[in-house]
Amino acid sequence: MAPLLRVNGLSKRFGEIVVADAVSFKLARGECLGVIGPNGAGKSSLLNLIVGLVTADGGSIMLDGAEITGLPPHRRARMGLGRAFQIPQPFPHLSVYENALVAASYGAGLHGEAASSWTMEVLQRTGLEAKADKLAGALPLIDRKRLEFAKALASKPALILLDEIAAGLTEPEVERLVAIIRTVKADHAIIWIEHIPHALRAVSDRILVLNFGRKVLEGPPADVMDSAVVREIYMGLKADGVA
């Protein structure tokens, strides 16, 4: 099967700081790629490059056989990229329902009845149905994280990009979120940046390790987590959150 996403030699630097150094990888539908690396390794920058919030200096990004490297973010979103931000980015003065409806209307291109019923389905799947008419700005953290995921899902993406969606949540909340992510895995490709190894292990098929913008390692979760390279990079950082 041809990969859904093909990233080839992706590079970006801000002055002296290299955030992406010839990064290449492939991802198929139904696959989840975990991304780890120390702070400042270029994980969020990689997502920004893929969704188009940052334009690449070099390399290419192909989605479903189409080159998207130079397209603006809204075009990429309509072509099938859904992103959940590390710091939740709700539309605070719109209701939860309206938040997801924006994604269903613009990202998925749905109208009227189709848009509203799809939006409700997404809210049901993300456990936000009961809060549909609440203002997004008034939600607690767990629900803002869920809403990030709901917005990404409502745009009917082929590829979902999750940026530390489990960070800052309690252990039971992380488990609930992982359960939700599992339900969508079969028919989406997922790239998931996370610092919580057991959450990542539970869902990922492969893990990619970034350091100084460079791909250091890519492989099955167990191999990567136990590798000497990862232990070295994370030395001193590995004390917390390890299962």
Binding site: L53, A77, F85, Q89, P90, P92, E98, V102
Partner: peptide, 25 residues
């Protein structure tokens, strides 16, 4: 209207709006 929903999303958060497919420009 749905154009208005797009306008309100840009009012609230233009970064999030473009990320779900709203043509902010």
């Amino acid at each position: 209207s749905s154009f208005g929903l797009g306008l309100m999303s840009v009012r609230d958060n233009d970064l999030a709006a473009m990320s779900v497919g709203v043509d902010v420009r």
